[in-house]
Design a protein around this nucleic acid. Structure first.
Lengths: 91, 91, 91, 91
DNA sequence: CGGCGCTACGTCCGTC
DNA sequence: GACGGACGTAGCGCCG
């Protein structure tokens, strides 16, 4: 019995829903998640290296974030923050 | 002036903190984050494909999660055993 | 001027966005965070006490974590069952 | 057998290490963690309320964080960020 | 638009 | 006392 069928096959498109196929999907996903996790580790390594030669990683993270945000967003958020600070007498 | 020096250079290890070097770190990180993001997209695609042939993605997500938890549990149990042995002076 | 209004008041629900109200929210949150922080300190104290009478805090932390995981697992298993039933058209 | 003793009792201070006592510590911690968790929920509720009357919660979170940091730290971090931005031509 | 899962940050502990 | 590692928590983004 190579391909156990699941459910009542009350589906519309494609062939039957087989357990083998399900397994295949699960394994593809797990493989990709491993890769993703590996890249994440690499990123951590770069931060570690930067730190080891004297850079402040916290600030680098902020820079990365800022570069990702587009200018409009940035200005808008800063303006709102200023407004709130003013309202609270934090200026 | 190819390498602007930052800060007071009040650092200990390595060479000076140059803007070039900073830029290099930032770009390496950004490159890696792009890759990571790309893998994340691939994962999304797999879910989409699975869905298109009739699988319930919510269920698949749960399976993935459980398989991860099972592994973690197993590791945790072993670690706990070690910890107990240590705590009881059995090491 | 007791209640400075913020922004363009381009909002939909409720009354005006006043600085007083904002201040009130901020203070409520800060108060609650103090309480939370205080509880966290209490927890730390308990660990310290346990340690002082000879217990291994690392082990205790693991026990706490496992007891939490067990509960989570149990919930998850039940949820998975429901999901499967749904996926198989058994609902 | 009311109080099982653990380990070889190779400890220095206090009385014996009993399982009962251990249980007591675990329960005290779990109780405190519940309280902490409850406060965290309260905080979430306040944010939700603030949002419901038109405030931007993201900005409020920033405000909370800023008020927690002392002025010196704040200035220092801002200065460093400016320096990095300049180095990267982000000004 | 709300809920959930994942990611990332800050905090705390153990080590050197 | 500082650094690095681990944990728990909080913010963000995707999915439904």
């Amino acid at each position: 019995m190579p391909t156990t069928e699941l459910g009542g096959n009350s589906k519309i498109k494609g062939g039957p829903i087989s357990a083998d196929r399900l397994k295949s999907f699960v394994e593809r996903i797990e493989r990709l998640e491993e890769e993703k996790s590996s890249i994440a580790d690499d990123i951590k390594d770069v931060y570690t290296e930067a730190k080891s030669v004297g850079y402040d990683t916290k600030t680098i993270r902020k820079i990365i974030k800022l570069r990702k945000m587009d200018a409009a967003d940035r200005d808008e958020q800063e303006a709102l923050l200023e407004t709130y600070k003013f309202a609270l007498g934090m200026m």
